[in-house]
Amino acid sequence: MLGIEDKSVILAYLLCIVSALLCIIYGVINWNKGDDSIESEDLHWVEEEKKVEESL
């Protein structure tokens, strides 16, 4: 298959493509799911993160 004789290499070749497809399908199905609201602790975190970035 695909000019490769060793089955475990064919499997790796195909699994690379299949796992990328899995990522695509997962993303499409869950495109609009998981929208968390911004809490006060998120905003506090952002303020502190800006200070960390300034130190760089």
């Binding site: 990328a20 990522c23 993303g27």
Partner: peptide
């Protein structure tokens, strides 16, 4: 990232990118 939704949306792009 803001929420899990952004992570969900990043999965397909990340998968294709690494491939």
């Amino acid at each position: 990232v803001k929420s899990k939704r952004e992570l969900n949306r990043a999965v397909p792009i990340g998968g294709a990118f690494i491939l």
